[in-house]
Design a protein around this nucleic acid. Structure first.
Length: 481
RNA sequence: GGCCCCUUGGUCAAGCGGUCUAAGACACCGCCCUUUCACGGCGGUAACGGGGGUUCGAGUCCCCCAGGGGUCACCA
């Protein structure tokens, strides 16, 4: 088998979408698994909507996810340029061939005319599709109109009574009847080629062996096959992966909340978690393990194990995976990740007062309590929000046995060096007062934090510091007396 | 509407004619650990869309129907 070469070809009309990211990922995985190559190219022929900023944002997102490529944007290569708008002369050559061989023709219809045609077809109960009106214009008419300065589009002459067959690597054999397809535009009146045409030329010129893309492109494939055939070009293999749906089973869109990769980054998801999660949407490894490193995924990835059915984006699972990755981080790495969130929080000043030991403990306590980095903000309130004694807390504080516990705490809290000593000390109160642990911990917790739940009490005390803790308990003691 | 794709538990999914009285994971529920919450451990509820075939035997193959999705642009 020849070396495989795949590509990811986004159109820079918006940020990288979750679905696009997965297409990129599957291409990347195929390339790496087979020791082939990945090309990144920009399909920017929609002049209206394409923006260079989006291209940059997409590239940044891909890099963030952990995807790199061997040829194309930013890295260069021998088949450039890698932006379609910079390849216009290349397409012209093929357009000319199609025109000369009478497989394409000029179309002078205006938007309005086409619109009207569509309306009438609808009214007749038929569906839109170009009538072929300009197909039989004589050479003289064409010449005349051109001379008048009219700007025509160029349409491909769809052969009739032909069946186009796609042997799709994930869907199997799919047939399309050419009679259901109207003559389509390959070059717009502004001289820019359309997707269905440019994509073929690029894939051929760049030596793409496998086209792996979203299923929404399956219906377009016969049009592309026509171009390959008309130009006598070798067709690549195709693999159409199913779409990612929202929880209402519709194609993922803004309505479903965050759909772009940058949004997930901003929410504090880790790139390795997204990488893992996206790989598992539509693909599954042989084993039962769900948490897989990029290398493990690469070595296990094959198109044969890609599912045909669409997948609903399951945020719960993403959350769980992200949590797993947070748990796996070593301390310093986690600290580095969390620091910015600590510094941006309303409690940044409190955090700044902590010494290294306290800060390290805070990071470790946070580890088990957050799902994504963004949770740090609200979790921090558990540590640094001033106590507000709610009804439940007051009830516990005003119970009979509370006073002696608080007094014992104030009188006996040792000059500890680590949180474990605090734990031991509180345990010792349970013994000396002959109380259940709960009847010691809860009054203290409520006195200290105002709440009946939260992180381990010794950790909280350690992070607040001895003086602050004592002072809080003293105040409560006075209040309830 | 035409064409095309898809259909296993709430979700992701394994299964590629017999070992399926159907795996695993997320979520959910229960129990345990525990001062509480979280973490962790253990266990549980829960599925082959419907109908016809083919076959000794069908979740697995074929057909029909239903449902969902995609596509029919001078967008990709």
């Amino acid at each position: 088998m020849n070396k495989i070469k795949v590509r990811f070809a986004p159109s820079p009309t918006g940020p990288l979408h979750i679905g696009g990211a997965r297409s990129a990922l599957f291409n990347y995985l195929s390339a790496r698994h087979n020791r082939g190559e990945l090309v990144l190219r920009s399909e920017d022929t929609d002049l209206e909507r394409s923006r260079r900023e989006y291209e940059e944002e997409i590239i940044e997102s891909l890099r963030w996810l952990g995807i790199d490529w061997d040829e194309g944007l930013e890295v260069g290569g021998e088949n450039g340029p890698y932006r379609q708008t910079e390849r216009l002369n290349l397409y012209n050559e093929y357009t000319a061939r199609l025109l000369e061989s009478d497989q394409a023709y000029y179309c002078f219809c205006s938007e309005e005319e086409l619109e009207e045609e569509r309306r009438q077809a609808m009214a007749r109960g038929q569906m839109p599709g170009y009538s072929g009106k300009c197909r039989y214009l004589t050479a003289e008419e064409v010449k005349a109109r051109l001379a008048q300065g009219q700007k025509p589009a160029i349409r491909f002459k769809v052969p009739s009574n032909r069946v186009y067959v796609v042997d799709d690597l994930v869907r199997g054999r799919v047939n399309f009847d050419s009679n259901n397809i109207g003559d389509f535009i390959i070059v717009k009146s502004d001289g820019i080629p359309t997707y269905n045409f440019a994509v073929v030329i690029d894939d051929v010129l760049m030596g793409i062996s496998h086209v792996i893309r979203a299923e929404e492109h399956l219906s377009n494939t016969p049009r592309q096959l026509m171009i390959y055939d008309a130009l006598n070009l070798k067709r690549p293999e195709f693999a159409h992966i199913s779409l990612i749906l929202g929880d209402d089973r519709q194609k993922m869109s803004k309505r479903h909340g965050a759909t772009s990769l940058v949004q997930y980054r901003e929410m504090g998801y880790l790139p390795e978690a997204l990488f893992n999660f996206l790989a598992l949407l539509g693909w599954s490894p042989e084993g039962e393990e769900q948490i897989l490193s990029p290398d493990e995924i690469i070595s296990a990835f094959t198109l044969e194990r890609v599912a045909k059915n669409p997948a609903v984006f399951d945020l719960d699972k993403l959350n769980w995976i992200n949590q797993q990755y947070i748990k796996q981080k070593d301390h310093e790495e986690l600290k580095t990740l969390i620091m910015p969130y600590l510094q941006e929080s309303p409690y940044a000043e409190d955090v700044a007062r902590l010494d290294k030991v306290q800060l390290d403990l805070l990071v470790e306590v946070l580890r088990d309590r957050i799902i994504c980095l963004n949770d740090v903000g609200k979790e921090l309130a558990e540590f640094f929000a001033l106590p507000e004694y709610d009804a439940g807390a007051m009830e516990i504080l005003q119970a009979d046995g509370t006073e002696p516990v608080l007094e014992a705490f104030i009188n006996g809290l040792p000059d500890y060096k680590e949180a474990a000593e605090i734990q031991q000390f509180i345990k010792s109160i349970t013994k000396s007062l002959k109380l259940k642990p709960k009847n010691v911990f809860m009054p203290l917790r409520c006195a200290l934090s105002g709440k009946s739940h939260g992180p381990d009490l010794p950790y909280l005390i350690f992070i607040w510091g001895r003086e602050e803790s004592l002072s809080r308990v003293r105040q409560v003691l006075e209040m309830i007396k």
